[in-house]
C-alpha cells in the first residue's frame, strides 16, 4: 500500500509537475515583490511575450508533427532586417508582403528537406539557423538596418500601436492563437498533424500524406516567424542583425513547458500560450525580485530540463526507470 501511494505521488508530479512548480513560483514572487501581481505588470509581461508567443504558435505545429524547428530565431532576424530594408526601398505596403514571401520560401525549403527528403529536422534546422544568419548578414552587409524617416511612416502600428487600449502585438498574438488553435483542433489538417507526429507509419498506412503535412507545418512556422519579425521591426523601426538570436531555444522552451511532447503527437495551441506566459512570468518575476537578467538563462533551462524529464516520466508512468 505504501509503495502504491509513493507511485501515485510520483505519477501526479509527473503529470502536473509544471503547474505545481509554476504555482509555487508565482506565490514566491508575489510574496517577494508586491508589484508582481498588478495589472500594469501583468499587461507588460504579456506584451513583451507577444513576439516569442507568435513564434511559439508556429513551432507548436512543427513539434506536434514530430519535428523540431531551431531556425526560427535567425529566421526572425532575417524577416526583421528584410522588412526594414524593403520599407525604404519599396514602401511598407509592398515591402511587408515581399518579406512574407521570402520568409515563407525559407520555410518551404526546410519543409521540403524534412518532409519530402525525410532528413532529420534537428540537423536541417540547426544548419538553417546558421545559414539564415549568414544570409541576413550578406543581405545587410553586416550593418544595422534603420528606417530613414521614423516620424513619417505608419509602419509603427504593428509594434507600438494600440486599439481600444490593447497593444496591437497582444491583439495579433491573440488573433493568431485563436485562428491557429481552430486549425489545429478542428480541421482535417490539424488531425493529420497529430497523426503524423503520433505515429508517422500508421498515418502513412491510413493514407495520410505525411510529407505534405510536415511541409505545411514548416510553412505555418515560417508564417508566424514573419509575423514576429514584422512586430519586432515595427516596434523599434530599426534593428541589429542578431535581434532574434537565441530565441529558438526560448520558443522551444515555451512549447515544451506548455506540454507538447518532443516525441510528437501531443500538445495544443492553448497549452503553448500557457507555456509562453509561464516563461514570461518567471523571467519577469526573477527580475522583480532583484536578480540580474542573466540569471534567467540558468533558471529557464533548469525548468525546461525538468519539463522534459517530467514529460518522459509521465509516458513511463514513473519518475525513474531502468529502461528508456
Amino acid at each position: 500500500m505504501a509503495a502504491l501511494t509513493t507511485k501515485n505521488i510520483g505519477g501526479f508530479l509527473a503529470r502536473q509537475g509544471i503547474i505545481v512548480a509554476f504555482v509555487l513560483f508565482m506565490i514566491g514572487f508575489a510574496l517577494a515583490n508586491d508589484r508582481f501581481i498588478t495589472m500594469d505588470n501583468i499587461f507588460g509581461v504579456i506584451r513583451s511575450s507577444a513576439i516569442l508567443g507568435v513564434m511559439a504558435l508556429g513551432v507548436t505545429f512543427v513539434v506536434i508533427g514530430g519535428n523540431l524547428d531551431l531556425s526560427v530565431g535567425s529566421m526572425m532576424s532575417f524577416s526583421t532586417i528584410v522588412v526594414l530594408d524593403l520599407h525604404d526601398k519599396l514602401g511598407p505596403a509592398l515591402g511587408i508582403p515581399a518579406m512574407y514571401g521570402m520568409t515563407l520560401a525559407l520555410g518551404a525549403f526546410i519543409g521540403f528537406l524534412v518532409g519530402y527528403l525525410k532528413l532529420n529536422s534537428l540537423i536541417v534546422t540547426l544548419g538553417m539557423l546558421s545559414a539564415i544568419h549568414g544570409l541576413t548578414l550578406t543581405y545587410s552587409g553586416g550593418k544595422n538596418m534603420d528606417i530613414a524617416d521614423k516620424e513619417g511612416t505608419w509602419f509603427g502600428i504593428f509594434g507600438q500601436g494600440s486599439i481600444l487600449g490593447v497593444p496591437v502585438p497582444i491583439l495579433i498574438f491573440a488573433l493568431l492563437a485563436v485562428v491557429l488553435s481552430m486549425v489545429l483542433a478542428k480541421t482535417p489538417f490539424g488531425r493529420k498533424v497529430y497523426a503524423v507526429g503520433g505515429n508517422g507509419m500508421a498515418a502513412t498506412f491510413s493514407g495520410v500524406p505525411r510529407a505534405r503535412v510536415v511541409f505545411m507545418t514548416y510553412l505555418i512556422s515560417a508564417f508566424c516567424v514573419a509575423t514576429a519579425g514584422l512586430i519586432q521591426a515595427s516596434r523599434s523601426l530599426g534593428s541589429q542583425n542578431t535581434v532574434g538570436q537565441g530565441m529558438e531555444l526560448e520558443v522551444l522552451a515555451a512549447v515544451i513547458l506548455g506540454g507538447a511532447s518532443l516525441l510528437g503527437g501531443s500538445g495544443t495551441v492553448f497549452k503553448t500560450v500557457i507555456g509562453v506566459l509561464i516563461l514570461g512570468f518567471i523571467q519577469n518575476g526573477l527580475l522583480l525580485v532583484g536578480l540580474e537578467f542573466y540569471v534567467q538563462y540558468v533558471v529557464t533551462w533548469v525548468i525546461i530540463i525538468l519539463a522534459v524529464w517530467l514529460d518522459i516520466a509521465a509516458k513511463r508512468g514513473r519518475l525513474l526507470s531502468p529502461i528508456a
Partner: peptide, 17 residues
C-alpha cells in the same frame, strides 16, 4: 506500429483516412 496512432482516441483513429 502501422495500424494505429496509439496516443489518439478511438474515434479519431477510426475516421483518419
Amino acid at each position: 506500429g502501422q495500424g494505429l496512432v496509439l496516443g489518439m482516441n478511438c474515434r479519431d483513429n477510426m475516421t483518419l483516412p
